[in-house]
């Protein structure tokens, strides 16, 4: 059966619009108009996939273009499967709200699975397969930059450095850690702080050394930082950041436009979540070492409590923070001690 359709034909050589009728019989396409008389083999024509409510478009071998408002006119081309058939299915999905809601559900699910399990898992695997030298180089570079931009040389006595180093060495052997770690002392404008750089470097600030009460508290802090290093948290943070960046880029298609601006907040929340997980893990491991060395978790709890009392910063809500709230950290530590 041959049906006649109406359409508009552009020959591709001039901008003139020809009002035409066309018929499709088997593989033969005949286009007829006032001054148009063209016959084509449908097999050599390219059908543009259907898109929304717009008219259907077919490009002929000679570069001509046939538009028709009749969306099923080119069905014979689509029922054979292949690309055209696939796009018929995609257009079918795009035309239905039920499919759209399904797509929202699948997308949310995939994003959640990937951000909660996928990225951390891949980053962990990658971080532990990095050669030791690369990790050490990362740490050295980070320390050089930190020295250049915000750290000053320590003003504590050399003797105090040696005493603390000896204390940590002893702690390391008591708690069953494999290697002794070199400590780095610096003066910092940001007050009491300690941080672990990749490659077994713990930086202690002078302000921290004078802030802690008793060596046990200091060992608790060092243990926490050593746990970060053992688990390669710094390298994993970098890799997870890259993972989040890739995920947001794939989802939104660019990095600077308005839509990407909307992607920065979820990315930030996700990264803070990763960071809080690392803090929890570091607390858990450090508490094991402290208990193995016979100090228990009390010095860690005492330190956290005093840090919070001292801290006058306008702290935001926990979901925005890189560290879990102190109450949660303390209650976790108590649970671990039991």
């Amino acid at each position: 059966m041959v049906t006649t359709y109406h359409g508009t034909y552009f020959d591709g050589k001039s901008s003139r619009a020809h009002e035409v009728t066309f018929t499709i019989g088997g593989k033969a396409l005949s286009i007829r108009g006032e001054i148009v008389c063209e016959d084509f083999d449908l097999g050599h024509c390219t059908l543009e996939p259907a898109l929304g409510n717009t008219c259907r478009t077919l490009y002929t071998p000679g570069g001509g273009r046939l538009d028709t408002p009749d969306r099923d006119a080119f069905f014979p081309l689509e029922e054979t499967g292949g690309d055209a058939g696939m796009f018929r299915l995609i257009h079918f999905l795009e035309s239905r709200w039920t499919a759209a809601f399904g797509a929202v559900a699948i997308t949310v699910l995939l994003i959640l699975v990937f951000s909660i399990k996928g990225i951390p898992y891949l980053a962990e695997a990658a971080a532990f397969s990095l050669p030791e030298e690369v990790v050490n180089a990362l740490g050295r570079r980070a320390l050089e930059q930190a020295d250049r931009f915000f750290l000053d040389p320590s003003e504590l006595d050399e003797d105090e450095h040696l005493r603390i180093q000896a204390l940590v060495d002893q702690f390391v052997s008591e708690s069953g850690l494999p290697e002794p770690r070199a400590l780095v002392f610096r003066k910092s404008p940001f007050g009491p702080n300690a941080f672990a750089l990749p490659g077994y470097t713990v930086v202690l600030t002078d302000e921290l050394v004078s802030f802690v009460e008793g060596d046990e508290e200091l060992l608790g802090v060092v243990a926490h930082e050593l746990a970060h290093m053992k688990m390669r948290h710094a390298a994993r943070t970098l890799l997870q950041g890259t993972g989040v960046f890739i995920m947001v880029s794939v989802l939104l298609g660019d990095v600077t436009s308005i839509t990407a601006a909307a992607g920065t907040l979820p990315a930030l929340l996700l990264k803070s979540r990763y960071s809080r997980e690392f803090e929890q893990e570091a607390d858990a491991i450090a508490s094991q070492w402290m208990q193995a060395a016979g100090y228990g978790v009390e010095p860690m709890i005492a330190f956290l409590t005093r840090l919070e009392n001292k801290d006058l910063r306008t702290g935001g809500p926990e979901f925005l923070s890189t560290h879990p709230s102190v109450e949660n950290r303390i209650s976790d530590l108590r649970k671990l001690a039991e």
Binding site: G52, I90, E94, A99, A103, T107, I111, V250, L251
Partner: peptide
């Protein structure tokens, strides 16, 4: 311009889902 937000939403979400998959 004849595009509508609802129609484009459906195209957009199917695009994203297929891109992830």
């Amino acid at each position: 311009f004849t595009g509508t937000a609802g129609e484009f939403f459906r195209i957009w979400i199917v695009n994203i889902t297929l891109t992830i998959l």
